[in-house]
Write a protein that binds this DNA or RNA. Sequence first.
DNA 1: TTGTAAGCGTTATCAT
DNA 2: ATGATAACGCTTACAA
Lengths: 346, 346
Amino acid sequence: MQKQSTINDVARIAGVSKRTVSRVINGSLSVGESTRLKVEKVINELKYAPNAQARGLASSRSYLLGLIYDNPDALYLDDVQRGVLEVCSTLGYELVVHPCRYQSESLVNDCLRFMRRSKLDGVIVLPPVSESETLALALKESGSPYVRLSSVALDTQEHIVVSDDRAAAAEMARYFAQLGHEKIAFISGPQRYKSSTERMEGFQLGLSAYGVKIPAEMILEGNNTFETGIECAKQLLQRIKRPTAIFANNDQMAAAVLKVAYSLGIKVPEQLSVAGFDDNMLASRVTPSLTTIRRPVRQMALLATTKMIMSIEQNHKAAANVAAKVAPTLVVRESTGRCQSSDTEN
Amino acid sequence: MQKQSTINDVARIAGVSKRTVSRVINGSLSVGESTRLKVEKVINELKYAPNAQARGLASSRSYLLGLIYDNPDALYLDDVQRGVLEVCSTLGYELVVHPCRYQSESLVNDCLRFMRRSKLDGVIVLPPVSESETLALALKESGSPYVRLSSVALDTQEHIVVSDDRAAAAEMARYFAQLGHEKIAFISGPQRYKSSTERMEGFQLGLSAYGVKIPAEMILEGNNTFETGIECAKQLLQRIKRPTAIFANNDQMAAAVLKVAYSLGIKVPEQLSVAGFDDNMLASRVTPSLTTIRRPVRQMALLATTKMIMSIEQNHKAAANVAAKVAPTLVVRESTGRCQSSDTEN
DNA sequence: TTGTAAGCGTTATCAT
DNA sequence: ATGATAACGCTTACAA
């Protein structure tokens, strides 16, 4: 375990000042070609690597990005992480993960402390935490670069990447209507989340274009977990007049519908069409595989990280120019089909 | 965005030297009670928080832990992360995640650079990367605290947390045998991974206790993905003499078996018993739900992190005393049942 | 183009 | 028990 070599070692051996070594490290243009080569040679020989802490202390930069989330969905989180890290690693940043409790009163303080403690250069905030305006405000006031992922354009271009969940849900509505479904149910996510209301409204609007309306009793609220999906599905499917199609706010709950339908002997898609939202791993694993909406999660993460780093590196204009909107797309699989209900009454 | 207050501000206002403030922060015993109170009061008033970088630079500590992994499935990774972070947050550490490529030649250098760059206090290494002895050796030589998660006791107590996959697989074998199965197949993971060979050997050994042997053609190798699971399952189930029970190296592949069985009209568990390994989310979501082995992943993460931090804080003996072995357990669900095959020939 | 000197905010050393 | 003062390894004025 030999001691790490420092900038001083490099300077001494290369016979230049440490300031010059620093310039080489940071790619300054004002370094003579021969000097640069000489220094680089020594750097390689010594396997010198700058100390990030010292660097940070001097320049008030840490090359550390934070990821703030409160998300029960492991698959979503993993997708995001992969996307973020892809950009991070090529640009020399590292990622510090920070789960937190959205509902907690101490959310804002907790997050700010997190940023200060590790002197993060910026944070990426995932839904639903990203919907907290108080947090966003605090971040803005503290001058910390941040980017939010959301289904609504809650912030300026520089600070957000949104997925148009509303339009995607409308597309699902269109698809359902074209399959001839009229008795349609919707299992929503928590109404306090923007993503939930966006999807619900998009779906309703989409249906209304076809003259289809979802009666109140056909709209149930789950909390995006498989378990609540089971509850809602039971309520919906044990009725006399059960729906011929169910759209769930996410794949977890849609998978739950499949499960309940199976236990009730209801055939999918023959007697019941089911669709979810996310297109996570689950969607293709279950039987029948789920028709769903694919969220380009990884792409959002890439965009957010790029935006983030541009902000950090002072290209605010460039940051605002990175695409800020992505469009989820319909993925048709086995769980949906034409409405075959014989009773055409209403 | 007001400037952060520093230790100097605290010292000045409290009317003591910064060394004393430092002592208070670090809970030194040699500080007078009245002095301590005075300083703590100022700290609170100023909302002072020590700068981690400066602290790290001076003490060569970063309060940063690293998590090194290569594409374990998202659910496993998430479980680990939650466990690690649970300990981290209570002990004042942050977690930096670092995916890498196990197969890459630059694995060792990549990981070492990662550690140096961010001056990590220690790293937790997940399988299969944890099985790389060259990496472990490099880590040891560089004097970096590290803890490995594995299915085999590859290292000293201080550096490892193992799950006894072999015993768990043997338990599954016992369960299968007691259900009366004799024509049993196994879909293994990549044989270059210890976890794969452990599970396979455990399963075979367990069966042999009941006089059951798996013929070579009933052992197929997948790579732990759903897709290869599909391939293997097709090969196994389209035979004339197909097995009455299949044990897969993980839940992903077991779910694939379910899918193939369904498409072939083979009833599970009536005509075919299926079991997986992991007990991740998938296991309870699919239909029928999967009998599997529950790996106490979160618990392993907790133990590893505790061990890690004890090592960092110089309690090597204590670190070695943290439990290093956990036992996965059999979880019986709907996908397995008594062997009902009519033909008893071999 | 290159170098000198002064920080950055802590902890460590050694006095007192 | 407390305090000067020197590191820690780097960047940033400011010169030269």
